[in-house]
Amino acid sequence: MDSLVVLVLCLSCLLLLSLWRQSSGRGKLPPGPTPLPVIGNILQIGIKDISKSLTNLSKVYGPVFTLYFGLKPIVVLHGYEAVKEALIDLGEEFSGRGIFPLAERANRGFGIVFSNGKKWKEIRRFSLMTLRNFGMGKRSIEDRVQEEARCLVEELRKTKASPCDPTFILGCAPCNVICSIIFHKRFDYKDQQFLNLMEKLNENIKILSSPWIQICNNFSPIIDYFPGTHNKLLKNVAFMKSYILEKVKEHQESMDMNNPQDFIDCFLMKMEKEKHNQPSEFTIESLENTAVDLFGAGTETTSTTLRYALLLLLKHPEVTAKVQEEIERVIGRNRSPCMQDRSHMPYTDAVVHEVQRYIDLLPTSLPHAVTCDIKFRNYLIPKGTTILISLTSVLHDNKEFPNPEMFDPHHFLDEGGNFKKSKYFMPFSAGKRICVGEALAGMELFLFLTSILQNFNLKSLVDPKNLDTTPVVNGFASVPPFYQLCFIPV
């Protein structure tokens, strides 16, 4: 009986604490739906499609509103004006990374994606500088992407125009580009180590996009005490870190300090320079996690976009025909596509942009946080508050993009057929937390897609009208449904 009384008292205290925290903070924060004790607004949000729920709530509470995930307040920004004001106009104040408990377990605050403060700034600055020195957006990395595009075309030829699921092959190409940047090595598509790495990356994007992960991140005790797919994700990350550590040891034994070959060499050189400046942010643990982040951000996002792009091109054969006509006119058949071609191919450029806009790969991006107490639109948001960005509300804005739910390359073309930029184009987020590999991803999408369409016609196994382009999961990332196609050599 005594234990029951204690339990009831504990629960009562928890409920009172929950109510007090919510009521004391709500006077400062933007308005929002009334949260339930302990669980907050979790029942009012469709976990399978958070973005749709945010759109519905914005119609009631406006472009800036507050939700509670458990006891934790989260300020939501919906629509271009609110997102721009926060991420661009007040970029420094909104540059923090929001709480992501599962990532905390995986990387302990290291790396480039989930770190904060001085650690994040130094690692991000170093990573950007190193990638630029190796030619991100310049010639040397373009050579690597072109080489991988040629290998991709050869792998597709091996399908002999038979029906195939493109998931694996389209994942190999961007993964190999990242391998060449980090390890100075590309792998054969049949290499077992490479296959294991690909498998872990593919599993992780599916797990991260599941409703279960949303629950884990908002009720963090689940991570330590409950079984579930989150444990598989943590094991996959541990596998990748151990693999990278092996490569780091190989580099330490063979590195030429006067001739760095890749990202690992550059990081080890930085560690050597910083060894007298303790404590340094440049450690082996930081290198492991930064490399894992580059793999995660640079492989599955690009391969998922490529997979979605081919599905949309199957669905819209008239678009595919126009792209192939432009390829034939500008590039021809006797040389590989290059980035200089893009400025002469406005329709193809528009298609690449429209694919990214339409699929809305990361509907709410990753959570941000404010780095200080900030007054925002007459609300006071306390330091450390998590900020949720609705990228969907920007990419699918119906004023900027008429009929935003329709796939239409003319969203990025003017009346004369010239490519038209849009400030609403934010597939990689915006501001200080914009994806480090934005330029690389854009290069890969253009070169891989043009190389495929230069060499193959795409054949659907069903009537294009019957192809479903609805994402199968739409949590962290929008993942396309399973499909097969035939690559018919031109």
Rank of each mutant, 00 (worst) to 15 (best):
I264M: 08
F425T: 07
M129F: 08
L67H: 03
F376A: 03
F428P: 06
L361K: 09
I387D: 00
P37F: 06
K232L: 08
M339T: 12
L306I: 10
V292M: 14
E81M: 07
K28F: 14
I39L: 12
D165V: 01
F194V: 06
F183T: 07
V462I: 12
R150E: 14
K200V: 13
Y424Q: 12
T392F: 06
F419L: 06
Q484K: 13
L131D: 04
R329P: 01
Q261P: 08
G431L: 06
L87K: 04
K315P: 00
R377K: 15
I182S: 02
K84R: 12
G79T: 03
K459Q: 12
K52I: 04
K247R: 14
H276L: 14
L366S: 05
V436T: 06
T229M: 13
T392K: 10
L16Q: 01
F226V: 12
F226G: 04
N116Y: 03
W120V: 06
R108M: 07
L87S: 06
L311M: 06
L156D: 00
G111P: 10
E92A: 13
I434S: 15
C13Q: 02
G171H: 14
S422V: 05
V351E: 01
C13G: 10
L128P: 03
L447S: 05
P101S: 14
L445N: 05
V76K: 00
G46D: 12
K52R: 13
K273E: 05
D408G: 03
K200H: 10
F412A: 00
L156R: 00
P317E: 07
I123Q: 11
A106E: 08
V351Y: 04
K72Q: 09
R150A: 14
V479A: 13
E85T: 09
K423W: 07
P382L: 04
E328D: 12
T371Q: 07
L395D: 15
S343W: 13
P33N: 00
H316F: 09
L102A: 07
W20H: 04
L440D: 01
G137W: 11
R105A: 09
K190T: 10
Y308A: 07
D341A: 03
S220P: 08
M406Q: 11
N133T: 07
D143L: 11
L445P: 01
I222D: 02
K421H: 14
L447G: 02
N218A: 15
I74T: 10
H410C: 15
T320P: 06
L485R: 00
C172E: 03
R21S: 10
I205M: 15
Y225K: 04
E354L: 00
A149C: 09
I178L: 13
M257L: 14
F69V: 13
I112K: 14
L11F: 13
L77F: 11
E250V: 08
H184V: 04
L77Q: 01
F239T: 14
S242V: 04
I244G: 01
C372R: 15
F412H: 03
L15R: 02
P227A: 08
K275S: 13
D262S: 14
H276G: 12
E328C: 14
E92D: 10
N217Q: 12
T66F: 01
N259G: 12
V64M: 09
N289E: 13
L90P: 04
I205Q: 09
I205W: 08
R144N: 09
M269V: 08
G62L: 00
